[in-house]
């Protein structure tokens, strides 16, 4: 298995973990409608919960391209479920950069994996993009659709062009924290069981 090209087995692994990551994202996303501040706290929740499947995924990566393909798939799924196309370039960019960072660590180095996962987590911010880029029309849309003014005000207080930088940084930081937690959990469960 020291060929450079991706094998069918790798593609199947990518598919499985993308599905798992999406399920995690979707489950967290459903909480967001309780209160807009929870929408902003996705940057904390999703990196930490998602780190468990992702760290297991990282142990299976050996070649360049697996993270990139995963980000393309995520972009497609986000589009299909109606999250918009504005974030797609950001998702794919985050995936490719994360892939490059992990590659520079040979896909095994602890430090590079943590940083790479932090960068990969930036895809979550892509979901905020419609809120930031088209703030006014988006707000009007939400009210038209039937969201309350209260919800909208809170949403835009939490997410706007000023806070997006903070959110991006938070996303990265909690991505790294999540990676550490995820690593520990993978060690606790999977290495003992001999799966990794």
């Amino acid at each position: 298995m020291n060929e450079k090209k991706l094998q069918a087995k790798d593609f199947i692994t990518i598919g499985i973990f993308t599905a798992l990551l999406f399920v995690v994202e979707f489950a967290c996303g459903m909480l967001g409608f309780i209160h807009p501040y929870i929408v902003a706290s996705y940057v904390v929740m999703i990196p930490i919960v998602g780190s468990i499947p992702m760290m297991l995924f990282y142990t299976k990566i050996e070649k360049f391209g697996m993270l990139s393909i995963m980000s393309v798939l995520l972009a497609i799924i986000m589009f299909v479920t109606g999250m918009g196309y504005l974030g797609a370039p950001l998702i794919i960019a985050a995936g490719v950069i994360a892939d490059l960072i992990a590659k520079s660590g040979g896909y095994k180095s602890f430090r590079e994996t943590v940083i790479s996962y932090g960068v990969f987590c930036l895809w979550i911010c892509a979901n905020y993009f419609p809120v930031v880029v088209s703030a006014d029309s988006y707000r009007k849309n939400l009210i038209d659709v039937g969201y309350s003014v209260e919800y909208c005000d809170n949403l835009f207080r939490a997410i706007n062009s000023k806070t997006i930088a903070v959110l991006l940084v938070l996303c990265f930081v909690f991505g790294c924290v999540g990676a550490l937690i995820g690593k520990a959990i993978v060690k606790k469960h999977f290495e003992k069981a001999g799966i990794v």
């Binding site: 991706l6 069918a8 593609f11 199947i12 990518i14 598919g15 499985i16 993308t18 599905a19 999406f22 399920v23 391209g65 393909i69 995963m70 393309v72 798939l73 497609i76 799924i77």
Partner: peptide, 15 residues
Amino acid sequence: PDGITISLAVVMRFF
């Protein structure tokens, strides 16, 4: 490309 097709097919089948 094959890579995306196969992965996407797996995702679809996996939910």
